[in-house]
Nucleic acid binder design. Structure first.
Length: 819
DNA sequence: AATAACTTTCTTTTT
DNA sequence: GAAAGTTATT
């Protein structure tokens, strides 16, 4: 065991304390390999850790922070560690507290750039003219603002999508180009339109006292640039700064890091240029490539040993990344075993692909003892999850989907949040617009137009115009409605000053009419929505509890905006994980399926024009492949439903780039190269078309013949405890409790029918082909077909007088005629 | 002003 | 295969 001489400026301690600390520090360092040790114990000053996948870089960062704390570097200063997700921060923090338990009280600021600087803004907002109750606009909110502005200016939102305009504005902001400068630089038609919107957009956010995601970085930058004293204060607060996934920092983040580390230079960054996959949102790979130029005295450590994957998997990864030109040279190696060959799976359609995934998972689980949590299914676009979910659900395999529409992005949740935001911040125009006539209360577009005209004529905030609605010239009904709305919001603003937020939110949901909206129609969908809203109430109550009595609603709202699905993950449950390749960054799984390897999908069609985009896609593939510890599967479908129609799938060019030596097809052959890839595997894959006997039965020894097995053999893997499988998995982080709690809280008359779930499509079961039905308008007819379920259920009906029509059951109000 | 039903458009990845 | 936009009807 080695002992380290700890830093000379450590606090004064008794000899015993000093000894204890040195032992702790030694233990922290001894757990690592020499290269990692070097990274962890590097002297003060800039440190660049270039680390390949699976090299334990997050571990290194964790240990470095722990080591600094053990060495007494933290007190009285604090350590800042910026991670890529909030979840990563949480995990790192808890590991640090295990490594240096006696220092659990050490102040570590840990989180994403966005969450850390939202905190900074909460403290300093007034200094640059914002109030600390600012709202945070996510890209959805921003897009709405952009859309409205475009409508105001008569820009065709069909020709130029608000999303595109928003993202142009966002990248301008990221590069710190202001509206007037952007107008000068605009060189294309969309850019001209963006330039037209950019200034007003900034103005709207400003008057709304709102910050978008870009502002969360830019405003602190502005703060630091305008207030040297504030900068100095933060420079001294955070003497040691750590940044994980440095290759994915954007320009503003780069500047922030540079400013903050400007005084003490203790900036330690970890990254892998080969894993840079966020250029589309402004990440600049140059940040890591030029670190040594920015900090010539930097200690550079390379971590090239991989501890995660088998040699085979690494070989595939290496073959992939070699096709990229702009890459720092790294040679990855591992002492791990060769491991299993990589398997290439071909489905006849995306359904077949999904079915095969399900079969493989089942098979591996039974034959090799994997748990569900050992599997990850990765895809390029969120929409690909559907087919896979269907297959897993049918197979009774529990799963969770990360990303997609996260809980806080759901409409019903955003509606409630918009009310809360308005209560906190009456200038929040976007939230106001969202809820002013939802649920409908008679304040339609025309009335709002008049009120807005009045506001701009009088040069008063929109909210004030609402208060003076009787001067705006709208009709008496609208005046009444607006006054009701204003009173509603203001009474809650008043109550929010003294009352706890949990019950307050519950009352709000009732008084605003949202509750009535959910009850109005008893559909399964509304029930789910209502459950989600209950869950939100619980989340708020929970937050309130964790913060003690002093609850800041605005703070909760701000944090919620930065919360993502990936942060929520309860890893404890034994489920298969489904997510995009992007979301998989930093994670690892025993078995990984990279799916949808088809031209146009992965790589995505849009990336084909620009070689840099294509390289990013390739890095994405590299990231996906290197998530696997033991087994890797590459899958594709020969046809796929996209753009609403069936499209043929051509094997991805990426498949030509992997090392064919270590890849075999399901049939056990070595993968064939490009020249004949279009016919490759056709013989054996053809068998997959016969679904019933499918599962590659024809391919020989690879597959267990399910039919010949003891029927109980698979029982264990069927339908584990978790209830209705997937449905809840997106959003059901403990939803059950939600109802109970609200119900218990003691207003029996409001007791929602929690147990009795009235499913109002109850008639649906009777609507089968052949059944005679009657429609209010079309008269009688015969059902020809029914497709979709629940909300989406549609029936094709042949009406006696009107001919064939396709009706959405939700609206159609079909009555069954007795035969 | 609100609703129902039909039509169109668009689908990358996300802090 | 879903959302937003459009139109017709009350």
């Amino acid at each position: 065991m080695r002992t380290f001489t700890l830093f000379p400026d450590a606090q004064e301690r008794t000899d015993d304390q000093q000894k204890e600390r040195e032992q702790a520090a030694t233990a922290i360092v001894d757990a690592l390999n020499p290269a990692q040790q070097e990274a962890v114990t590097a002297a003060d000053g800039p440190v660049l850790i270039v680390a390949g996948p699976g090299s334990g870089k997050t571990r290194v960062l964790t240990h470095r922070v722990a080591y600094l704390i053990a060495a007494g570097k933290s007190a009285p200063y604090q350590i800042l560690a910026l991670t890529f997700t909030n979840k990563a921060a949480r995990e790192m923090k808890s590991r640090i507290q295990k490594l240096v338990p006696e220092e659990a009280g050490a102040r570590i600021w840990m989180g994403t750039f966005h969450s850390i600087f939202a905190r900074v803004m909460r403290r300093e907002a007034e200094k640059i003219g914002y109030s600390s109750d600012f709202s945070i606009y996510d890209s959805d909110d921003s897009e709405r603002v952009v859309r409205e502005l475009m409508n105001d200016k008569g820009i065709d939102t069909k020709q130029f999508s608000p999303r595109m305009i928003r993202s142009l504005i966002s990248s301008a902001k990221n590069q710190m180009v202001g509206p007037s400068q952007y107008a000068r630089l605009a060189a294309s038609l969309p850019q001209d339109k963006a330039a037209e919107i950019y200034g007003p957009y900034e103005q709207v956010l400003r008057t709304a006292n709102a910050l978008d995601f870009d502002d969360l970085l830019l405003k602190p930058l502005q703060l630091f640039q305008e207030h040297e004293d504030v900068l100095a204060q933060y420079q001294d607060r955070w003497r040691y700064i750590h940044i994980d996934e440095y290759q994915d920092t954007n320009h503003a983040q780069y500047r922030l890091a540079k400013l903050l580390a400007g005084k003490h230079h203790n900036l330690c960054v970890v990254g892998d240029d080969a894993q840079s996959i966020y250029a589309f949102r402004g990440a600049d790979i140059a940040n890591i490539l030029s670190f040594q130029r920015d900090y010539p005295d930097a200690t550079v450590v390379r971590l090239e040993q991989n501890y995660r994957s088998t040699k085979t998997i690494l070989r595939v990864a290496d073959a992939i990344i070699k096709n990229n030109r702009d890459q720092l040279d790294k040679s990855l190696w591992t002492e791990n075993a060769d491991g299993e060959e990589v398997i290439l799976i071909e489905g006849i359609s995306e359904k077949d692909e999904a079915l095969k995934l399900e079969h493989y998972i089942r098979d591996l689980k039974v034959r090799h003892g994997y748990g569900h949590r050992d599997f990850a299914i990765l895809y390029r676009t969120n929409s690909q999850s559907r087919a896979i979910e269907d297959a897993l659900r049918r197979g009774g395999i529990p799963y969770r989907v990360i990303g997609g529409i996260s809980f806080y992005q759901r409409r019903e949740i955003k509606d409630v949040l918009a009310y809360l935001r308005l209560i906190v911040n009456e200038n929040d125009i976007a939230s106001l617009r969202r809820v002013v006539n939802y649920p409908t209360r008679g304040i339609g577009a025309k009335s709002m137009q008049k009120i807005e005209a009045f506001a701009s004529a009088q040069n008063i905030p929109l909210w004030q115009a609402l208060r003076r609605v009787d001067e705006t010239g709208v009709g008496p009904r609208a005046i009444n409605a607006v006054n009701g709305f204003v009173n509603l919001i203001e009474s809650f603003t008043e109550r929010a000053k003294t009352e706890p937020v949990g019950p307050l939110t519950r009352d709000l949901i009732k008084d605003s009419g949202l509750l009535g909206e959910f009850r109005r129609e008893h559909s399964t969908e509304n029930l789910v929505r209502w459950e989600n809203v209950q869950e939100l109430v619980n989340a708020i109550a929970e937050y309130a509890a964790s913060q003690g009595d002093e609850v800041r609603l605005s703070e909760f709202l701000q944090e919620v905006s930065l919360f993502t699905d990936a942060d929520a993950g309860d890893d404890l449950e034994d489920r298969v994980t489904l997510m995009t390749l992007h979301a998989s960054k930093g994670l690892e799984f025993a078995c990984v399926f990279v799916t949808g390897l088809e031209e146009g999908l992965f790589p995505l069609a849009r990336s084909l024009d620009d070689p840099r985009d294509l390289e990013e896609e390739r890095r994405l593939f590299y990231v996906g492949v290197t998530r696997a510890e033991q087994r890797l599967f590459l899958t594709m479908a020969r046809s796929r439903f996209r753009f609403g129609e069936q499209m043929a799938g051509i094997p991805s060019r990426f498949l030509d780039e992997v090392d064919a030596e270590v890849v075999r097809t399901e049939a056990g052959q070595h993968m064939q190269r490009r020249s004949d890839r279009f016919s490759a595997n056709r013989g054996s894959a053809g068998g997959g078309s016969g679904r019933g006997s499918g599962r590659g039965a024809g391919s020989g020894g690879d597959w267990v013949e399910y039919e010949t097995l003891d029927p109980d053999y698979y029982k264990a893997s069927l339908r584990p405890p978790g209830s209705s499988g997937s449905r809840g998995s997106r959003s059901s982080t403990g939803s059950g409790g939600g109802f109970g709690r609200t119900g218990r809280d003691g207003q029996p008359k409001r007791a929602e029918p929690t147990g009795r779930r009235v499913v109002l499509d109850e008639g649906e079961g009777e609507l089968r082909p052949g059944v005679l039905v009657e429609h209010d308008q079309f008269g009688s007819g015969k059902i020809l077909a029914v497709d979709g379920t629940g909300q989406q259920a549609k029936a094709t009906v042949d009406f006696d007088d009107y001919g064939r029509k396709k009706l959405v059951l939700r609206f159609a109000r079909l009555r069954v005629l007795d035969a």
